[in-house]
Design a protein around this nucleic acid. Structure first.
Lengths: 333, 333
DNA sequence: TTGTAGGCGTTATCAG
DNA sequence: CTGATAACGCCTACAA
């Protein structure tokens, strides 16, 4: 016989313990005080029947799911992994779970995924959204509460945490200039990435105050392979140093340079951005700007939590990346 | 005035369109056919009121949440990232979302997270669970449908996908022996990892048929740092080759060897496991066993989907890792 | 302290 | 083709 088993509900427990549903609910939630003897009976019924309350029903009646969604362009990017980890662990401490959606760098998918995910969650974490401004504003308006990571947003519309890429890249440029590089090639990231735009802006600013500093721009991308493939073009620019969009690009570049027997940093110095775990272990070890990945996630959660609790939005926070000089830039060339 | 806005419900839409809730529900779900004029009125009301159905209410009445949970020991591990990505993308195609929980390599946390996550989802993906057998069985029994990744499980209890680590490491050992290494040191992974146990078993088997092959075992771990710190001990064993638990360990080891000016592969050959994205880009490039990370996730989803649809469980699948010879093992020493 | 009953937002059955 | 109405599983005034 095929026992089409309906999950056991609070009614079953009530019947089994010979009390009302209300009482079962009470002992399970520890709200009102209940007669110890009865409470014990209920608890026993619960274990005997292996009863576990339906989270869905609880969500419906309580008006919240205790779940938040996080939308990322690419789960393979160590930056987003770190942020996800930070959000996930912080949220767990407050009894929240995280739903994650990978949009595969597709701006259109980003919009629908956000809207759809928001329907089943209490809030949204938008990570480095690639959407055009119009859609971005629309999604934010429809998804409150929202916290945005790594993209500027009108203070009132949503909470935000981010990285000061402009200042970071200026510091990096300054470091390179300091050790004698007057011509660097910038390996640009995805066009839709606003953090790439911030880096470019930072570079322009630096250039404005340092006319002797020359920057050649190359459209590259964000992955190991993108960096690997950019090596020849980077060399062809004649620059003495390369500034990569992020560490992945830098690592890919390094590996190709090695194949080509191009000495780093002597012929070409290389710097990345993010300080991913492998950066320190690369050969030569990678000079980069450190970004607090998990902390970014933790801060994102803190802001989301405030909004969820109806507290006033906390101030946006912008982390200053920290310069980490390693061997890939070396000394004065 | 503080407008405590209740979200707009189907009732609001019905009122606005001067029809019943039933009709609204019908046009939204396209179930029964509805008078075109009325349908249009409803749709207009929907957009005007910006109505979006409550996923929670739908879940309650439909009896499913269209969400599955995935439990992983560590989100920073590239293997789990790849699997997550595979599950996430495959599930998305079938209209499912993925809830992710990082247990920080804590077996106790693993149990509670699984049970708790299962309450709000339709199914569970257990990734390389570290729990002791007893708890493992218990969690599985309480969480059906479940698919387990990278840990053996009684065929009837849950679906499973995995990697044939034993055969993989034998192939790797064979490669090393083939190029002349008769003494290798195995840098072991987390004691609670069953895939580590599988590797050890494979090594023992290989040893049984190749008495001239000597294996020294070292307790190391699973991270870059673990590998980095194991370098001196590995050298002290006098082995001519190191077999790392995974690529992270191997990469950490490589970087430390470089600092120590130990030539690889001449003084010590190094091999990893998993073929993570950075393995190819390491210096020297890393010999390793390739594991289809995303495919593992896709297969896991396929099995879960079958179970969710009430179809008979598909057969367990075990992927054979593929040997990828690169420079870190080199030629005959 | 305990039980009764109403409601959370949808879907689905069954009459009209 | 459309409209009441009963679930779905749980929580919470309110009443006893």
């Amino acid at each position: 016989m095929i026992a089409e088993r309906r999950a056991t509900t609070i009614v079953d427990v009530a019947l089994h313990a010979r009390v009302s549903q209300a009482t079962v609910s009470r002992v399970l939630n520890g709200k009102t005080t209940v007669d110890p003897a009865i409470a014990a009976r209920v608890r026993q019924a619960v274990t005997e029947l292996r009863y576990r309350p339906s989270a869905t029903a609880q969500s419906l009646v309580r008006g919240r799911t205790s779940t938040v969604a996080m939308i990322v362009p690419d789960l393979e990017n160590p930056l987003f992994q770190g942020i996800l980890r930070g959000v996930s662990r912080s949220a767990a401490r407050d009894g929240y779970r995280v739903l994650v959606a990978d949009t595969a760098e597709d701006a259109a998918e980003e919009r629908s995924a956000s809207l759809e995910a928001r329907r089943r969650c209490d809030a949204l974490v938008l990570c480095a959204p690639r959407m055009p401004d119009r859609e971005f504003a629309e999604v934010i308006a429809a998804s409150h509460p929202v916290v945005v990571v790594n993209r500027a947003v009108p203070e009132s519309a949503a909470a935000s945490v981010g990285v000061d890429y402009a200042s970071g890249i200026r510091e990096l440029a300054s470091h390179l200039l300091g050790i004698g590089h007057t011509h660097v090639v910038y390996l640009a990231g995805p066009p839709a990435s606003t953090s790439n735009a911030q880096r470019l802006a930072g570079l322009r600013e630096f250039r404005a105050t340092h006319p002797e500093f020359r920057i050649t721009e190359l459209a590259v991308g964000s992955t190991l392979d993108d960096g690997y493939r950019a090596a020849e073009d980077a060399l062809a620019t004649g620059a003495s140093a390369a500034l990569a969009f992020n560490d992945m690009v830098a690592l890919g570049l390094l590996s190709r340079l090695r194949e080509l027997d191009v000495p780093v940093p002597d012929r070409l110095a290389v710097a990345g951005f993010d300080d991913v775990p492998t950066a320190r272990f690369a050969t030569p070890s990678l000079t980069t700007m450190s970004v607090p990945r998990q902390e970014l996630g933790a801060q994102a959660w803190q802001r989301l939590k405030a909004l969820l609790d109806g507290d006033p939005a906390e101030h946006a926070v912008l982390f200053r990346p920290r310069l980490v000089v390693r061997d890939s830039t070396g000394r004065r060339p």
